[in-house]
Design a protein around this nucleic acid. Structure first.
Lengths: 348, 348
DNA sequence: TATTTTCTGAGGTACGTGCCTCATAAAATG
DNA sequence: CATTTTATGAGGCACGTACCTCAGAAAATA
């Protein structure tokens, strides 16, 4: 015979379907002793709720929201594409995804957006935002209102309720370090490290990992202090220029944030020597083109499609208070070079 | 209002539910004109079948089978683990997975196993086997019997009906080539290429890609002819020994097949110099340990968990004759070094 | 036109669960 | 013991689809 159903459960526990239902859905009106009897039966029969049937009966759709930064860059675009792809794929599974945007550097606006969500509109939310006190509070409120939360790409280490879906940024930094150490062969010289801001926790962690490996495996290289662009093209051009002027022996460049177009433009303007090793993050269209053309040596990638789907799975699991297949939700730190670049379109 | 249902369809097409049902499930007894009318309504309303409800009504489980080689090595073990993990995860989704085994080098036994499957026991099968005429024929028969097929890890290029779930092996070879070229710095010397057999298409493709990149980017290295172990430990020790004797200047070793324990043991016995770059395939426990210890520099990985889940998705989609989200089924060629190795357990 | 054959509609039951109401049994309270 | 409160059972409708039967309409054939 097939899987046990609620009926089998009722028989095994010696109670009625109504009571099974009350226990399963944590409704009140059941004596503790009975609750335990039902749970014993669940374990004994190895009962698992049929979620399809449950959702069908409830005729409920999962309403999920992704909160993303409001500025547009190629990485965000990739995420949006992955979300829209997931949305079509999940039409079959009673899941609707929407996106809201808030300025990344305005914690109060972000918190406002979060606070504005009601249980009627949203069952779960994936939040991509730097950790700040207002955001942390807003996340706690969500939890209190019974809305599931995951931290998406940027971790929220102090919001316990928010599972993190993203890569280990320190390990990512170490990986870049190892590639930099090996790709530069035996050469000596300076290594530039560029990012938009070192305020972001991600950048700090990446830098930490990178430095550790460089110190250990490539002491021949001088790793310079992080250069911050603040996302400003003019400033970017200027600091890159200054970096090249001050260091005629640049052997490598680490582009630490996920949008490399402005920085690479500035590097192009300076004319980096062909043997200079350049490594960045995220497989954006620009990165793709540059990998193909050879002006970029490798990028560290977090599989955006996987990030999105993983978030959705985690959110659903939290809503259904089911266990998650943990290993499935671990995001890989991927290394992409010209040779192993996926052909096109959204990543796997 | 929510998604359109069969009732909405019936109303829109001006027919009854019974007719809708006949059309949706391709039953007979509907005039061609009516069929077209229904299809038009489907398009117009953008109707998508609710698969959960359908399966619920049919009270049908998907029965899937993985056909794997009968010998045991760590890669196969990893696959088995991934399958069992998927199996628990998919309990919720009316999917049962079983595994059958057949000797990899006995095409007729494989074909027998395949022929032995009946529609009663199996709805779809993922086949990991070298392409041979008997297997190809057996696959055609499956198709005729209405059983969905995917080629798993090993492609079946001449079996049209079998979608392939696995990596592009030529690109994988190119990737190894690029890593080998860069990791060896400016050094000169010989490169050993070891595999179990060059009969396998996978090995041929990997070698092809590897050679192309080595010729282009590292002409300073002498890439030797492929050494075949035939899976025999004694022979492995002997040929590795011979390789080291004949080439005192070994700069790199490419372990082309997915089980590297025997070969690495033989290499250990010879005492490879520390700067010798060794690259293999698949993140088995042995590979993990060696990456951590430093005796292995990198492995090319196909995410086994992803392979398994992808196969399952493709099989289900074929059975339901639904479109697949193509990009989701593309398997990445991953590069794993010590720094970006996933912590433990089954891969993502 | 009469007859047969092929389509089509109407309506039912089922799948496993959620969620509701109503009645009754058991326990706790006065 | 009488009364109130709390637990529980019984039963039904709903979700969206599959699949069955039966009757009747339309089309094809004689």
């Amino acid at each position: 015979m097939g899987r046990p159903t609620t009926k089998d459960l009722a028989k095994a526990a010696g109670v009625s379907l109504a009571t099974i239902d009350r226990v399963l859905n944590a409704r009140s009106g059941v004596r503790q002793a009975t609750v335990e009897r039902v749970h014993a039966a669940i374990k004994q029969l190895n009962y698992v709720r049929d979620i399809s049937a449950a959702n069908l009966a409830r005729s409920k759709d999962y309403k999920l929201v992704f909160l993303l930064p409001s500025h547009d860059d190629e990485f965000i675009d990739t995420i949006l594409a992955a979300i829209s792809e997931a949305n079509t794929a999940l039409l079959h599974e009673r899941t609707q995804i929407s996106v809201i945007r808030a300025p990344a550097n305005d914690p109060h606006r972000i918190a406002e957006e979060i606070d504005g969500l009601s249980t009627d509109d949203v069952d779960g939310i994936a939040i991509m935002a730097p950790e700040t006190p207002p955001v942390r509070d807003a996340i706690s409120n969500l939890e209190a209102r019974g809305i599931a939360v995951v931290a998406f790409v940027s971790s929220q280490p102090n919001a316990e309720s928010a599972d993190f879906v993203g890569i280990n940024n320190e390990a990512a930094g170490r990986t870049v370090g190892q590639l930099m150490a090996r790709f530069t062969g035996e050469r000596r010289g300076a290594v530039l490290v560029v990012t938009d801001t070192m305020q972001a926790r991600d950048s700090q962690e990446r830098r930490l990992g990178f430095d550790a490996i460089m110190a250990k495996y490539a002491p021949r290289l001088r790793v310079l202090a992080s250069m911050e662009t603040y996302g400003d093209p003019a400033r970017t051009a200027q600091i890159i220029n200054a970096g090249f002027q001050a260091n005629p022996d640049i052997a490598g460049i680490y582009l630490m944030n996920h949008d490399l177009s402005e920085t690479m433009k500035a590097v192009d303007a300076q004319g980096a020597p062909p043997e200079c090793v350049i490594i960045g993050h995220e497989l954006t269209p620009e990165a793709r083109a540059r990998l193909r053309g050879g002006s970029l040596d490798a990028v560290i990638t977090q599989d955006v499609g996987h990030l999105v789907r993983s978030s959705i799975r985690v959110l659903k699991a939290k809503m259904a208070s089911l266990g998650t297949v943990a290993s499935q939700e671990r995001i890989r730190i991927e290394i992409t070079m010209r040779e192993n670049m996926p052909e096109n379109g959204a990543p796997v």
